[in-house]
Simulated assay, not measured.
Amino acid sequence: MAFITKEKFLSNEWLSAYTYLIVGSIIFAVSDILFVVPYKLAPGGVYGIATVLNTMFSWKISYCTFAMEIPLVIIGTIILGPRFGIKTIVSITTILVTVWVMETFISPDYAKVIADPMLNTIVAGVFYGISIGLIFKSRATSGGSDIIAMILAKFTKISLGKLVMIVDGIIVLFTLVQPTETGAIGWEFAIYSLIIIYIEGKIIDMVVSGASYHKTVMIVSDNYESIASKIKNDLKRGATIFQGTGAYSGEERKMVYSVMSRRELEILKLHIKEVDPEAFVNVTEANEIIGKGFQSLNED
């Protein structure tokens, strides 16, 4: 989840990467201060821990985060080597400075800009997702729990993705120690934080890979030629025909593989229904498609 890239200084790739990085970092900081901190939420990361500390002891978010980020970067560099790159440092610094400016010079009247807790949670998830997605598109990471997960991954057999979820899940549990207006355990803080994490993940995928408007389809049918012809001639899409053997019957069968839009898929399904109602059709989301007719590798 950390990247080291060597874009040529001031090249289009360099300018694009740092634009994504700085804009994403600023959006993250603003989102945290406007939508997360006022509701005492902690959707993972060191900023989640900082929110809990801010709620309980009135410590500044920027100071708490600085006290955690710097040691994490140093320890991570010692244990993992220089894997983070200058852009991760730039991201961490930009977020810290923006948060400090907002805490220091902006009136606290910003608290609870959106009155409804659920609407606020949705907005926070969307903006968090946009910000982290932009940072990822710059081939960087915002540090924090990512570094913790990478350190744990070095000494365990657990995948990095699972470790990030575990670390962020534990941080979410910290919200339970925060006082509520009624004095009860703050389950609502944890629930809203988990909703933010879920929405954030979906938005990150959309920002990094684009909205999923396409489907991957695989059809097993005796009328594969008619189906492939429909895809090629009417839908103007490419298709690949594979040779397969049924595990149960032992018979050789042909499989047609293709990628197309949702609208095109519905047209194809009607054709399959006409020529072979017994066909086996498997449809999955195509989150990222690179190649002729779709996104070029030069644009990635």
Results as ranks from 00 to 15, higher is better:
residue 6 K to Y: 06
residue 12 N to A: 12
residue 13 E to Y: 12
residue 16 S to P: 13
residue 20 Y to V: 02
residue 22 I to E: 04
residue 22 I to M: 02
residue 24 G to S: 01
residue 32 D to S: 10
residue 34 L to V: 11
residue 45 G to C: 05
residue 49 I to M: 09
residue 51 T to W: 08
residue 65 T to M: 08
residue 68 M to N: 04
residue 70 I to Y: 10
residue 79 I to H: 02
residue 81 G to T: 11
residue 85 G to A: 03
residue 85 G to R: 04
residue 86 I to C: 02
residue 90 V to F: 11
residue 90 V to Y: 13
residue 101 V to R: 07
residue 102 M to C: 06
residue 104 T to D: 08
residue 107 S to Y: 01
residue 108 P to F: 04
residue 109 D to T: 15
residue 110 Y to L: 01
residue 117 P to E: 04
residue 131 S to W: 05
residue 136 F to Q: 12
residue 155 F to R: 15
residue 161 G to A: 13
residue 165 M to Y: 13
residue 165 M to P: 10
residue 165 M to R: 11
residue 174 F to D: 07
residue 175 T to L: 03
residue 176 L to K: 06
residue 177 V to G: 10
residue 177 V to D: 05
residue 182 T to M: 08
residue 186 G to K: 00
residue 192 Y to D: 00
residue 198 Y to M: 03
residue 198 Y to C: 02
residue 202 K to W: 06
residue 212 S to Q: 07
residue 217 V to Y: 15
residue 217 V to F: 15
residue 218 M to W: 12
residue 220 V to H: 05
residue 222 D to A: 09
residue 225 E to V: 14
residue 225 E to W: 13
residue 230 K to H: 05
residue 230 K to M: 11
residue 243 Q to E: 15
residue 244 G to P: 12
residue 245 T to K: 14
residue 246 G to F: 09
residue 251 E to H: 12
residue 252 E to I: 10
residue 256 V to L: 03
residue 260 M to P: 02
residue 262 R to D: 01
residue 264 E to R: 01
residue 270 L to W: 00
residue 272 I to R: 14
residue 273 K to W: 02
residue 273 K to I: 01
residue 275 V to N: 00
residue 276 D to Y: 02
residue 280 F to K: 08
residue 281 V to H: 05
residue 281 V to Q: 05
residue 287 N to S: 07
residue 292 K to T: 08
residue 293 G to F: 06
residue 298 N to K: 15
